[in-house]
Design a protein around this nucleic acid. Sequence first.
DNA 1: AATGAATGAGATTTCATTCAT
DNA 2: GATGAATGAAATCTCATTCAT
Lengths: 200, 200, 200, 200
Amino acid sequence: MTDSTKSRARGADKRRRLTAAAAEVLHRQGVERTTIADIAETADVPVGNVYYYFKTKDELVQAALSEHEGNLAELTTELDRLPDPLDRLKALVHAWVGQRDIAVRFGCPTGTLAVELDKRADGTLDQEAGRVIRVLLDWVEHQFRALGRPDAGDLAVTLVAGYQGMSLLANALRDPDLMTREGNRLIRWLDTLAAGGAAS
Amino acid sequence: MTDSTKSRARGADKRRRLTAAAAEVLHRQGVERTTIADIAETADVPVGNVYYYFKTKDELVQAALSEHEGNLAELTTELDRLPDPLDRLKALVHAWVGQRDIAVRFGCPTGTLAVELDKRADGTLDQEAGRVIRVLLDWVEHQFRALGRPDAGDLAVTLVAGYQGMSLLANALRDPDLMTREGNRLIRWLDTLAAGGAAS
Amino acid sequence: MTDSTKSRARGADKRRRLTAAAAEVLHRQGVERTTIADIAETADVPVGNVYYYFKTKDELVQAALSEHEGNLAELTTELDRLPDPLDRLKALVHAWVGQRDIAVRFGCPTGTLAVELDKRADGTLDQEAGRVIRVLLDWVEHQFRALGRPDAGDLAVTLVAGYQGMSLLANALRDPDLMTREGNRLIRWLDTLAAGGAAS
Amino acid sequence: MTDSTKSRARGADKRRRLTAAAAEVLHRQGVERTTIADIAETADVPVGNVYYYFKTKDELVQAALSEHEGNLAELTTELDRLPDPLDRLKALVHAWVGQRDIAVRFGCPTGTLAVELDKRADGTLDQEAGRVIRVLLDWVEHQFRALGRPDAGDLAVTLVAGYQGMSLLANALRDPDLMTREGNRLIRWLDTLAAGGAAS
DNA sequence: AATGAATGAGATTTCATTCAT
DNA sequence: GATGAATGAAATCTCATTCAT
């Protein structure tokens, strides 16, 4: 390994640490209450050095969003291995419920980011979280379509809205069981749909 | 009317204007991006004077929440006039859809406040928005119970989660039609339930 | 004097002190080397308070320029009392030479500001100093025109350029006598012109 | 050519590129608004490497000044080939006017550097630009002396001040014609002088 | 010699809160 | 009660300079 490779590796590592720290801390504390120093400390990087990797705080927010988008891509790639689209959707719901402890404490990372960023009067980043949500919607719609549902788009909205809604409530009420109960309902609903029932 | 009565009246008026301004501006801009000066200006009250009515910014946030709670109480009082609990719930959904333009732009006032306040590490206010949401949940549950549903609590969570979810998505995607479509689905779902169907 | 008058007076006073401090310190240290703290300290105002009067550093620079423009207006108003335009111009040169100690140390306030501000890539303030210089040029041209010179515009440029050039040299060489010598030459030149000579 | 020779050559080249870049960028942006990174980028040299050639930013400023001094020396060497001192001076003015587009945009390199550096409270470099100006003055004075003028020193000051003044005005007013007009006047003035006229 | 990365001091700006009248 | 002004603690960002390899 040459010197430059090493230092590039070190640099990439720090960037990765900063991105991960940003994703985590911004999720926990929200964008506005998080300082660059918070992120730097979590990533164990001197504050001044953060700006070598990210020119502005907004770039860190963007990086956090990309991290969440990456996590989503990882998850759907995993789920795509399942042969049956219905199984994929049910596994998705299970994954959501499996994350309930984090959701209860801090909400859905992308959903809460969307809420915060949408409040921006300037045009910066205010649609970025929406973009990530759309990626999820598209994947879900794709599964419903594979199940032969002509109303796949609406069904996708219903499922994802169900997830965002239950995350928000579980978070606001600090009630993890709520996630489990609503998750189970969504699973049953998916089964109903597949059983050939009309769209609910 | 004596002087002191007048000034009390004037004072109460200012407090009301500040509360209304807080509710509106905090909803539009979010808690952290809103300055006291923003609220003061909207209420047409000199900045220095705000502190006579509200000792801290947090008290203004609290007041905004109370305002939203008041709006909710007004709405449910109105709905309570309807004799049929099912009609009440359907009218509630209609009311939600009727607010879609605001929801699309800024989300549900209470829901987005809940998201922001839950990020607080300190214990201040972080449960207050949840409290208001619970008031809504309780009222909805009460209707389902009146309809004879033993799973009224779960159904209430489903309905309110549906509302929060569709508000968040409509907001994130800037799509008012989404509110209409999901609203219609919720109405159909309520009808299904009443028709004696199993919980979906 | 009412309370509000008093506090308005205090406020106006501070604004004046800040403007004067800005004019002086920016002239001595240059725009880029001067911090808001420098100006605040000179004006004996807490740093945070500066922003109550001037929203940005640029506004302070603008204020300093206006101060210099005001000084110029004061001077020309004074000179306008002289009945003979030639006397006015000669008195102007005398005034310049009279300021030689400051010019030697820090150059012409407006000229050096023009040099600094012209380096700005963004469009902010980069023409403002030029504007003040044009005010001087216009006044001088007006005098030459009153003397019946058809080439008044060119003569004005020559006179003002002479002033800017001698200020810059005196400053760069730290030589106050240079101001005196060049000033005398300008006076002789003005006399020559008035004696009916051709434009030199 | 040995390796060390090559690398010495390469090193000298880098130093030259950095010096040229410093001269250009510092002239365009001013000392304070120019970062080492700006100069490094213009010279196509990695930032970290700059410090191998110049220990501080001040040394880069010094180098830029030397570059301008070198340009001046080149010019006067060229002019010295003309047999008649009067022709030399007129050619000098022509050279100035020929540079009018740059002067209009950024002023005289040495003059504007003098203005910026003179603002320094510390003793660093604050006389260096003055030194370069003096070199010019000396050369001009030499020509006037060769023309038999006893007041050669004053005449030199007048000519150079004229140049600095017209550059500053042209720059501040963004008017290239001003350079042409004042240049013509200086030429006529030189002719007048040579014709045996009294000093104007 | 070369170079990407690191560092920390300092600058501007914002704003909740308090003060003086 | 009312109000313009004051205050200072933070936060973001910049950059000359240094370091490690």
